[in-house]
Design a binder for these strands. Structure first.
Lengths: 159, 159
DNA sequence: TATTGTTATACTCTATAACTATA
DNA sequence: TATAGTTATAGAGTATAACAATA
């Protein structure tokens, strides 16, 4: 209930964020950081009329022409029903198209249009700028360690 | 478009996660990790009938008796309107109460009940177990570095 | 005038059950 | 019978405008 004991000894390893017990938890800091980072990226993508989801979907289709919706769903962990409106949006903007697969008429092969490819490229640029803005302050070693730690954590949490 | 270059030289620093360009971005890994971690914590808290928000609100009130709603809103970055139903829920479960402040009759002083204090303590235990489960695999140095990096990033992203 | 808590509302993201058409 | 895509729907989480009571 008092935090005198921890605050003695000068600035610790950046312990204060909200000034509550919650600062003790990596989990809580991770959530706040992730929200802030996502907001920054979302803001940047708004300039090219993309959301986080539409960006990742467009980019993954551009990278894997012929992909099925169910595969896309697995890769990005987006539930199949939720993918439908996302693809509808991209398709109505002429950024990608669904083509019937002759060998399996239940499925669609997804592919980007020229316009979609151009926007995907632009989206990657925007995202790289964002990464530099947000993670550029970390030195290379820390950045590498962050990537590794994040993957380990993601695995440990079953994601 | 090919990732042969990176994959030569044995297991790199855990580069593969979705197998797409998105793996290049710390931002994306951070989001996926944060989601997985939050899911794990949410699952654990469900056993004591708390959500992530209700947990953090309860814990912060327990730590700061007499807190105003607007202060709580600032600390947890929850919009004041969204706080109302959260507090209604906790109050209806007799975990906390709103008391009129005599010196400023617009405001409420928030405080936990005995029952609320007990649940807050239990919630901290549950959260510590979760932290151990999810971040226990990281050595102490990495864990410390992760906390620091997260704070830096949160600051850089304006969170 | 400004602030505290509130109401109403809306938008995004996510999750599930059930349908259709194919396999 | 199982799978691919779809529809409908519901629940969180989050954000904003506007109001009443009080400062």
């Amino acid at each position: 209930m008092d935090n005198i004991s921890q605050s003695i000894g000068g600035p610790p390893d950046g312990a204060e964020a909200t000034g509550t017990v919650l600062d003790e938890f990596v989990s809580y800091g991770l959530r706040r950081a992730s929200n802030a980072v996502q907001s920054d990226l979302a803001r940047a993508l708004r300039d090219i009329d993309l959301r986080l989801v539409t960006m990742s979907v467009l980019v993954v289709i551009a990278e894997n022409p012929g992909l099925r919706q169910s595969q896309l769903s697995d890769i990005l962990s987006i539930e199949r029903p939720n993918l439908v409106s996302i693809l509808d949006e991209l398709e109505s903007r002429s950024l990608m198209s669904r083509t019937r697969v002759p060998t399996d008429r239940r499925a669609y092969a997804l592919s980007v249009t020229e316009e979609g490819q151009a926007l995907a490229d632009r989206a990657l640029e925007v995202t790289r700028e964002h990464e530099e803005r947000v993670f550029g302050g970390l030195d290379a070693a820390t950045r590498r360690l962050l990537r590794t730690a994040i993957l380990q954590v993601r695995f440990a949490a079953g994601g």
